[in-house]
Nucleic acid binder design. Structure first.
Lengths: 187, 187
DNA sequence: AATCGATTTTGATCTTTATCAAACAATTGA
DNA sequence: TCAATTGTTTGATAAAGATCAAAATCGATT
């Protein structure tokens, strides 16, 4: 989920509101492999990735890590369900490389809702974007082969391609590691 | 997306608000194969299915109909992207059997926002539910075989199983028709 | 009841993807 | 720098799923 200066403009925030928003966010650094969120925790913050790359994943029945999403710089990092419903997350979110995040706690976020009304709309829109993204992702599984999904991934996320391992990408695309290795070679 | 009396209770609507809401919805009947929404139209209404079954679909590059969702009684029927962004839909929504829908226009919906504040929260929550559903759907494509996806579908939607064709379900699950026929036989 | 169209099943075959195991390469930390 | 770990490639083989075409079934209509 991407959030940048342009996309925020249309909400016409006042300088005061922008200041309030900015001061609510705190920067934090993450070493490679450090967790933004561990399984079983309630997701207590929304993070805005300013540098680096994260991924979210869970363990399937066979104990394999299944990557569900990547969070490069410029995107929001959040365990949606856990954050919204205040329930323990069944996912991990972990830095792939050294990263930096501006984050805001659940409580601060609630305060912002009251002080900066536009935030309600922003969060509604974020939920819409998220559901759109997930719908597109499902459509690809419905209609594309493993090879096609991989090529689309390469085109869309050339940056992630450099930093994530083959294994991360394979599980994200729902393909076996060995198979993805062969797909990659053929290009 | 399901919406029933129980799920609506937590918003503590006043009698007045409930009356306003109810009077904003108009019933409409659909014959089998009639369209709730045709491709290229802007989705101008949210519908609440009271009877019957709908499905949404689009055409892929080879001209095949790809079913993206089913809408049985008790669920909301809406082309999310189109409705929210006021853009022409790339999907069709069509009745599978004779059906009935309570629907509200985009404009009326906007009015409700103003008159019944809780509707903002309801719609935010609906977006959250939608993104949750789509995330789960993606996870299944990532981790389950065609057979496993089909069995889960049978368990979760025994009613749809009776009314939709094999072809509808096959494309929904991302499986070839012939393959799904064989999967079904083996059970 | 006969017919038309749509849907489903089936057989034969081909392609894609998974599995298992081993070798190889890269990375990290002592 | 040298293990030790982690990640990637490769080969052989099996299983899953797609494709094509024909036959069978089902429903609705005349």
């Amino acid at each position: 989920m991407r959030l940048d200066e342009n996309s925020i403009k249309k909400y016409n925030l006042t300088d005061e509101e922008i200041k309030l928003t900015m001061s609510s966010y705190k920067p934090k650094s993450y070493k490679a492999n450090e967790f933004f969120l561990e399984e079983g925790q309630v997701c207590n913050a929304i993070g805005f990735v300013t540098r680096g790359l994260f991924r979210s994943f869970f363990y399937d029945d066979h104990g394999n890590e299944i990557t569900t999403d990547f969070f490069p710089a410029g995107t929001l990092i959040i365990a949606f369900d856990s954050f919204n419903n205040r329930t323990p997350s069944r996912e991990f979110i972990r830095a792939i490389v050294e990263s930096e995040v501006m984050s805001i706690s659940y409580e601060k976020q609630k305060e912002l809702y009251a002080k900066v009304p536009a935030w309600n709309q922003i969060c509604k829109d974020l939920a819409d974007v998220k559901s759109h993204e997930m719908t597109e992702r499902s459509k690809r599984f419905q209609t594309l082969s493993a090879t096609e999904r991989y090529h689309l991934f390469c085109k869309e996320y050339p940056d992630i391609l450099q930093q994530a391992t083959l294994g991360h990408i394979a599980s994200y695309l729902g393909v076996d590691i060995a198979t993805l290795s062969r797909i990659r070679r053929k290009k």
